[in-house]
């Protein structure tokens, strides 16, 4: 990786033999090396500039959350000329309940979904990856297709079902399906991972008299921590960001989660209080950002190996 700073001027492709030779120039190669360095600097400048443009709205929102409302619209710049914490204190209490109430609701749903996905999906994945049973390929195909099923096709009867159980305005419609492995994507992710674990390990355990329960608990799960981490991270982010089902199943303000509560900012406050709206938006994004920061490795791996949105 360190040698790439020397020459970066060719169009994108893997280096060829000649190129590799050029990458390690004789110590005396002056003019071309110099030109290469300039190009490399230009390329990095362009990449950084582009990144800045992309992240600018986000950075501007952060900076605006510390500006008094009166100057937010007049200042496209990032450095506040006047600094205030008011947006955070006002925003926290701008809705019917203080914002921590919504944060707690979201956290409960995320926690339940995490447990549900980790347990139920890994169990199903174990069966698909390691057990021989009748109709396995058919069930596996059904599971794969259920990944692509749009939620809209089932949301209306689900609503009817959950309302007949009196579950509307509880967290159950959002947590119970996860306990039943309906996020089939994670089954697939873990099947892929389990397939990579050498079969010799569980065959040996089986010879030693281990049942499937113990193989699953003592061999598969401990060896699958990366897949479990990826599942946990994506479950966290998707559940935290989820809006559609929370909007439908939670209609009472004291049950609102962060996204549903944020949306009511538009009705509850006049358009002039963008400051507190921004402040609470930032608060709502902080957990995602932290997960991103600490879970990056698993995020990138998870997407790269299985490909998902």
């Amino acid at each position: 990786m360190t040698d790439s700073a020397v020459r970066n001027d060719a169009p994108p492709s893997k280096p060829t033999l000649t190129e590799v030779a050029e990458r390690y120039p004789e110590p005396s190669g002056k003019p071309s090396q110099w030109r290469g360095r300039t190009r490399s600097i230009l390329k990095h400048a362009a990449l950084i500039g582009f990144g800045l443009v992309m992240l600018y709205p986000l950075l501007w929102m952060i900076s605006s959350s510390f500006k008094p409302d009166a100057i937010i619209f007049r200042e496209p710049g990032l450095i506040p000329t006047e600094f205030t914490w008011d947006n955070y204190t006002d925003g926290w209490n701008a809705l019917l309940h203080p914002f921590d109430h919504y944060l707690l609701n979201s956290a409960i749903i995320v926690f339940g979904s995490l447990i549900g996905n980790l347990v139920s999906c890994s169990m199903a994945a174990y069966a698909f990856a390691r057990l021989e049973f009748r109709g396995r390929n058919l069930w596996f195909a059904i599971m794969l297709m259920s990944i692509m099923l749009p939620i809209h096709v089932i949301i209306v009867p689900q609503y009817i079902l959950f309302s007949s159980l009196d579950w509307i305005n509880t967290f159950l419609p959002l947590i119970v399906p996860k306990l039943l492995a309906t996020d089939a994507f994670f089954i697939f992710l873990m099947v892929q991972f389990f397939r990579g674990i050498p079969r010799e390990l569980d065959e040996a355990a089986r010879l030693d008299g281990c049942g499937h329960g113990r193989i699953y608990f003592k061999i598969m799960l401990p060896l699958s921590l990366p897949a479990l981490a990826t599942t946990a991270i994506f479950t966290f982010i998707w559940t935290w960001n989820d809006f559609f089902s929370q909007l439908i199943f939670l209609t009472r303000p004291d049950m609102y989660t962060v996204p549903v509560a944020l949306r009511t900012f538009i009705d509850a406050t006049s358009e002039s209080s963008w400051g507190s709206l921004f402040a609470m938006s930032i608060v709502s994004l902080i957990p995602i950002f932290l997960v991103f920061l600490f879970g990056q490795k698993y995020l990138v791996k998870g997407i790269a190996t299985t490909g998902l949105k």
Binding site: F133, W139, S146, L161
Partner: peptide, 26 residues
């Protein structure tokens, strides 16, 4: 294996029939 599969897949089967396929038919 068949018996074990039934246990390991139980949550998924229940979910498939109650939360996914059932509502689809409905």
């Amino acid at each position: 294996d068949g018996k074990a599969a039934a246990i390991f897949l139980a949550p998924w089967f229940i979910g498939l029939f109650l939360i996914t396929a059932g509502p689809m038919i409905a």
